[in-house]
Nucleic acid binder design. Structure first.
Length: 311
DNA sequence: AACGTGCACAACCGCCTGTCA
DNA sequence: CTGACAGGCGGTTGTGCACGT
């Protein structure tokens, strides 16, 4: 099992791609397009299976890729989209031009997931992690230090979901029910609010409120959330693949999970603090080594010559 | 300086879905 | 309708680098 017909036919190379292979693939696709992927390796003179070529192209060689550090806005958007879409990375990637599902998935698994856990948010359900002792005395977010570990943050169940443009959800035409906007509506709002080209890469927590994010009417940034607040949801959303996929069949989406993540965004420092972001220099070093290209700027200009060959 | 550990990222694996004969 | 095939997707693994001891 496993394998694909294209992989059986002959001895195919695996592992990292060499600069030579990259060049062959780029040249071929530049000239002919990929067409049928299974025929690409043969036509391009590569000892790879078609799927491998496709993956390499989509995740790495495509000229329209926006490489480099994820901006804070992108990370915010990923988190919010994940709350709505679950682990459907390709769907999430659609809304982040120049980013690949693989890239987003890696970022999620290596960075965002961890940060959410540190903040007491379950990255799967976007709910507060279960309290071990069950004491319920959630530490209020009342100090800068605690801002990075807002575990146990709870939102009153009657908190009104409010758009940052000042329009509450239940005022909108999208949903009559104030607590259950549809998935499509949430997506629309998320995307609409992220369309504005604001440059928000600040570590200042207050700046998060300048982000056009969904947020809640109560002022959670000042640690006024009390432990008396009822849990957000008594039935956690489990975003397994299967569950998430069912959303397509069942457009009604409980937004109960949203408050957690949104409030987290509002009070916490950026997920990858400061400029020393993980992927920042690693990628360039890797690229320079693997592709033996001279250092270039972060905009992926080394691909532009290739890009110019397309249309 | 050497070693161990953790992290980020690229790539593979296996399954699912859509298309077509 | 059914089976074969290709493409697509998400999960997982492998590799190399950075950093700490």
């Amino acid at each position: 099992m496993g394998g694909h017909s294209c992989c059986y036919k002959q001895k195919l190379r695996k592992g990292l791609w060499s600069p030579d292979e990259d060049e062959k693939l780029i040249k071929h696709i530049s000239k002919h397009g990929h067409g049928c992927w299974s025929s690409v390796p043969k036509q391009a003179g590569l000892q790879r299976c078609g799927k491998s070529c496709r993956l390499r192209w989509i995740n790495y060689l495509r000229p329209d890729l926006k490489r480099g550090t994820f901006s804070q806005q992108e990370e915010d958007l990923i988190i919010q989209l994940h709350a709505v879409l679950g682990n459907r990375w390709s769907k999430i990637a659609v809304h982040l031009p120049g980013r690949t599902d693989n890239e987003i998935k890696n970022l999620w698994n290596s960075c965002i997931k961890k940060k959410l856990r540190q903040r007491g948010i379950d990255p799967i359900t976007h709910e507060p992690l279960a309290e071990v002792d069950g004491s319920g005395d959630k530490a209020p977010i009342n100090s800068e230090k605690n801002n990075s570990g807002s575990s146990g943050l709870q939102i009153p169940a009657n908190a009104k979901l409010t758009m940052h443009v000042g329009k509450s959800v239940d005022e909108s035409t999208a949903s009559k029910s104030s607590s259950t906007p549809t998935k499509e509506f949430l997506l629309d709002q998320l995307l609409a609010t992220h369309e504005s080209p604001s440059t928000c890469r600040s570590s200042n927590p207050t700046s998060y409120f300048s982000l056009p994010l969904l947020s809640f009417a109560p002022d959670y940034t000042r640690g006024q959330i009390t432990s008396a607040a009822p849990p957000i949801s008594s039935k956690p959303l489990l975003w397994s693949n299967q569950t998430a996929r069912q959303l397509d069949a069942n457009p009604e989406l409980s937004c109960n999970a949203m408050p957690n993540i949104l409030s987290t965004l509002a009070v916490d420092p950026p997920i990858c603090e400061g400029g020393d972001s993980v992927s920042n220099c690693t990628w360039h070093k890797t690229r320079q080594l693997q592709r033996q290209l001279p250092p270039s700027d972060t905009s992926g200009n080394d691909f532009q010559s290739v890009s110019a060959g397309f249309e």
